[in-house]
Amino acid sequence: MGGRGPVSSAQTFVDLLAGRRDAATLAPRDWDGVIGVARSETMLATLAHRLKDSALPPTVAALFADQRAAAAVARQQALWEAEMARRALAPLGIEFVLLKGAAYAAADMACAAGRQIGDLDILVSEPDIRRAENALLKAGWEWVKADPYDDFYYREHMHELPPLIHKARDRMIDVHHTILPRTHRITPDALALMSDAVKRPDGFAVLNPADMACHCAAHLLADGDLQGGLRNLWDFHLMTRDFAAADAGFWGKLDARAELHGLRAAVRRAARLARDLYGSVLPSGWDGQDGSDVWYRRRLLARDDWGRVTRLLLEQAFYIRSHWLRMPPAMLAKHLWTKWRKKP
């Protein structure tokens, strides 16, 4: 971190979120790069919320107000998808747990402010998955694609049904039965995730705090190729901060749950990265260093002033790595080859 020369837009963006940099110290044109990076990370509305009370150039303030308003609409839409899933599944007694963005919004967490929410992700216990599928199909969702290979791939290897899209509302739902693909070398305890979930007064269930942080870290590090990593890390930073403030024993519980799910390394790394990028305060024992973190930090900050991913080789390496994590090597070769052959 640090280094010589002018500070990159990605670094400035992270510094603004972390509160290390005062927005008033930016030159007007510095905003181009910061906004470009924020847009590419789908975090512009997040930044708009973070800097709500900061001194901003008038046009930036106006743009940010637009972003906050649009994010409020998008959040309402996402919660409605959760409500419609509830209306489809509850009459059949199928329990489900909201995951990721919809869960953060339903629980009104700090990280939900301005957070982009894509598909609706829900967790259903494995024995219920067929019934859930049928109930959703009856309620107006339909398969996104009929490609037999993709379908086979999802059902055999992934941790979710092939994505369904609602024919009237044009919104996707991902029905998971665990939080990492079956082929992943790490197999979180899905039963524990479901049975220890927290039911909210509004009727929606979300993961308990420690599991939610585990899932966030898994999503960031064990599942993906660090695409959208700054956002997931921001989620992790804010949720662990607030969970620890509400419960002094949170970090200990998180450690135990991470151990249970086989996600200790991912959770520890997420915590260190959140500390390095966003200034998370970690308990003793968590606050160490790991030489390989530097690669993750570089990958997370690899955006130029135009919002483009820099360090393409590094990105490629993480893409291959993410597939490596999800699938045993022979299967990986088959998967990449099949994907390759499908290209026109």
């Binding site: 609409v73 309402q76 839409q77 409605w80 409500e83 509302r169």
Partner: peptide
């Protein structure tokens, strides 16, 4: 009649 549903934003 146009109906706006504030819950669904539809």
């Amino acid at each position: 009649t146009a109906i706006f549903d504030r819950r669904s934003v539809q």
